[in-house]
């Protein structure tokens, strides 16, 4: 397994276990690797669109899709853990990635009312809702934080 993959797995496993993404220093310490190599791996993973660094602070992770590194309006409860997702798609992506049931608390983008979705036994429970995509697929990564 190459080093970039080792870093990728460490990032995602850390988030899965703790709900929080590690910094470059955290990863370097955990893997016993030089910080410069971890920084290079973060850059490669960003180019592969597997993480998004915090604007202005590339040592921190803003997104490791479907997980968010900051609190958002998409709260995903899995057992006794609370994760934050980047969008509605990612909110369902968290139970999909963790292979676990979840309760998603979000806000209706139309009327601002709270909305709850539940994934149970590997399927979302029926809910009369639609999900709106505002940005065409070709431009999602022009500004992925906005998207």
């Amino acid at each position: 397994m190459d080093f970039d993959t080792t870093v990728k797995l460490h990032i995602y496993e850390t988030i899965a276990q703790t709900t929080q993404p590690p910094t470059t220093r955290d990863v370097a310490h955990a893997l016993g690797a030089p910080l410069t190599e971890v920084e290079a791996a973060f850059d490669t993973l960003h180019k592969k669109r597997l993480l998004v660094p915090e604007p202005g602070d590339p040592a921190r992770i803003r997104m490791a899709p479907p997980f968010s590194g900051i609190e958002t309006a998409f709260r995903v409860k899995v057992q006794n853990k609370l994760y934050y997702a980047n969008c509605a798609w990612d909110a369902l992506g968290i139970p999909a990635a963790l292979h676990h049931d979840a309760v998603v608390e979000a806000v209706d983008g139309y009327n601002g009312e709270p909305i709850t979705l539940e994934v149970k036994d590997g399927q979302p429970l029926p809910q009369p809702c639609v999900i709106h995509f505002a940005v065409p697929a070709a431009h999602w990564w022009d500004d992925i934080i906005y998207t």
């Binding site: 899965a16 479907p66 509605a88 798609w89 369902l92 139970p95 999909a96 979302p124 809702c129």
Partner: peptide, 20 residues
Amino acid sequence: MLNLNQLWYLAVTWYGNRLT
């Protein structure tokens, strides 16, 4: 506009093996 089943399909397809 997507319905919930479409979104779940995307979630599973995109992220189902993300921790591998």
